[in-house]
Structures are given as structure tokens and as C-alpha cells.
Amino acid sequence: MLPDRPASADQLSAALLAWYDRHRRDLPWRAPAGTKPDPYKVWLSEIMLQQTTVAAVRDYFRKFLLRWPTVTDLAAAPLEDVLKAWAGLGYYARARNLHKCAGIVARHHGGRFPDEFAVLKSLPGIGEYTAGAIAAIAFDQPHVAVDGNVERVMARLFAIETPLPDAKPALKGLASGLVPARRPGDFAQALMDLGATICAPRKANCLICPWSAPCKARALGIAETLPRKREKLSRPVRHGTAFLVTRADGAVLLRRRAERGLLGGMLEVPSTPWAAKPSAVPTQHAPMNGPWRPVAGRVEHTFTHFHLIMEVWHGEAKETQPPPDESYRWVASSALAGEALPSIMRKIIAHGLG
């Protein structure tokens, strides 16, 4: 523990690394102490962890690694299989970029991840944060990886009361100033662990924090009020009608969405466009002629930028009725669990068949 007085960057990093050596989390993608990290595992975990919790990612990571042990294995996989394996993790553009990035690394980098920050950042799906995390953790380079956890730690350590996102550049600068020349990869992971386990959003466990003494927010009694955030605007609401079509054998009619845009390349229950107001004549967007039976209740789902309210109408197709076009296909009810269906579509199917 540091003395209760201003501490230098070297003292702060040394105290955090000492704490990390005793309390580091055991994560399936984290290399054992003293061993060299696998850049493929670091990259895969960082992409999965974007906007997703560690608890949710653990099993997905293990399954991906068993199925595609190397980046060249992943690059050779059909995109459809990758999307199916990703289903449930959300933010599906990450899965498409994951597959695209694997292809570039396999074809243009000999199956080895580049160790230059700028080159990493140029790869699909890798932004400032992810490039910094890979450069630091996989290649032990003095880069900083600043996510929400690290922003919170910095805001509290230095008592930065400027609201987010305005404070982001300052918080990144403060974190960069603490990166040690020795063990920058461990330092990056230590910061992540500190924010995830000690300097938590709703409860700052200051008594067991290695930076408790020099923490300015603790001294001021404002730790749990930081970081400040701008008042959130309410999410807009969109409406739609989903058309759940089944056959006598239990198969469900699904449609593949366009590759670009929200839920790109995923399968969906065909529906009206999602708009600010419900469609006056929803059946004009139906995949077949009726009759249609409205299902009681509705399905709701919140995306990052809007809240969706869906009515569900059920229709039964003739046994021999073909799909309307090549974007549609019949999927047996027993095969639905293995399809690349986003959460909202699973909700709609469960509601419509329930």
C-alpha cells in the first residue's frame, strides 16, 4: 500500500503490479504468469469482450478456441458458421469483422498478428482501444488500453469531475502517463482487473485498493460519484410487425438480412420495416398471403440506440409452399437453436410459438 501522500507514476505502477501479482484473475485467454501470451487468444478475447461481460464471454471463447484453434482455422471457416457460433453475444458486426480480420491476417501476414500499433488499428474491427490492448498484452509494448473500467479508475484516482465523454482525452492521457517501461502488458491487465473487481461502478472497495492512499476522489469522499456522465437522452422507440410463418412439419420461415447494417448477415423472422409508428397496413410487407393471426402480447428489445416494440402475427404455409426468394429458407424447429439468430428473433419465435 502506498503512503498517504502524492505518489509518482513509478510508485503507482509498482504498487498496482504488486497487487496484480497477488490477485490477478484466472481468465481462459490470459497467459499464465511468466509465459508469453498468444496474440490470437488476446485478439479473440478483446473482440468478444467489446460491450460484453467477462462472464458471458468465457464459454464462447472456449468453444471458439476448440473449433478454430488458430487464426488460419478461423479464416478458413465459412462466415455462416462463425455467425452461428457467435449467436447470443450480440453486436454482430463484431463477428463479421472478426472473420474478415482473420482472413487478412492469414493471407497477408502469414497467419501472425502484426505487432505494430498502426497496423493493428488498420485491421477490421480493431479500434484505438483494442489495438492498444493487443500491443500491450500480446507484445508487451508501452501502450494504454482505456475502456470504461480504466476511465473510472483514472477519474477517481485523479478526481476528474469533467463529465464523460468530454473527459475521455484527459483520462487517456493520465492512464498513458502511468504505463511503465517494464511489464506494460501486465500493467494493462492489472488496470482492467482493478476496475472490474475493486474500483467497481456502484461500489468502490477502497479498503483493499492498492491505490487507496493516493486516490484523490477517496480523500474528497466523492469516489462513487465518479466518473460524471452527461444526462442521457431517452432512446427513441421503433415499432414493427413480425410475420412468423410455420409449416405443418413445424419448420419456420426465416430470411437472411442484408450484410450491411444492424444485425447484418443474420437470420430473421420477416417483418415490416422498424419505424417510429406502427405500419397502417403491415401485411403489405408479409412474405405470403394470409390468413394471419395476431399473437396476444408483444415483444420488446432494447438496442444501443433505440427501443423496439414488435407485434407478432402467425401464419401457416401450405406444406409444399416454396420460400418467396433466395433470401428465405425453411428451418426445422429442431435446428433453430444452432442457427445464427440474434436475441430479438429468438424472443419473437418463442413468443409466437408459445
Score class of each variant (00 low, 15 high):
199 C>M: 08
202 R>I: 04
203 K>S: 02
208 I>H: 10
210 P>V: 05
211 W>I: 15
215 C>R: 00
217 A>E: 00
219 A>L: 13
222 I>F: 00
222 I>V: 12
224 E>S: 12
225 T>P: 00
225 T>D: 14
226 L>E: 00
227 P>A: 00
230 R>F: 00
232 K>N: 09
232 K>F: 00
234 S>V: 11
236 P>L: 10
238 R>K: 13
238 R>H: 14
239 H>W: 07
243 F>H: 05
243 F>G: 01
243 F>L: 03
245 V>C: 03
245 V>R: 02
246 T>R: 12
246 T>Y: 04
247 R>G: 06
248 A>C: 10
251 A>C: 05
253 L>R: 01
256 R>P: 05
259 E>I: 05
264 G>Q: 07
266 M>H: 07
267 L>K: 06
267 L>Y: 13
268 E>C: 01
268 E>K: 03
270 P>G: 03
277 K>N: 10
277 K>V: 11
278 P>N: 10
280 A>S: 07
282 P>R: 12
283 T>W: 10
283 T>V: 14
283 T>R: 07
284 Q>M: 07
284 Q>D: 11
289 N>H: 13
291 P>K: 08
292 W>M: 08
294 P>H: 00
296 A>S: 15
296 A>F: 11
296 A>I: 09
297 G>F: 15
298 R>A: 13
300 E>W: 05
301 H>G: 02
302 T>I: 12
303 F>C: 08
303 F>L: 11
305 H>N: 14
308 L>N: 01
308 L>C: 04
310 M>Q: 09
311 E>S: 15
312 V>L: 04
312 V>N: 06
313 W>S: 09
314 H>P: 03
314 H>M: 11
315 G>N: 11
316 E>D: 13
318 K>H: 13
326 E>M: 04
329 R>T: 01
333 S>Q: 12
333 S>R: 15
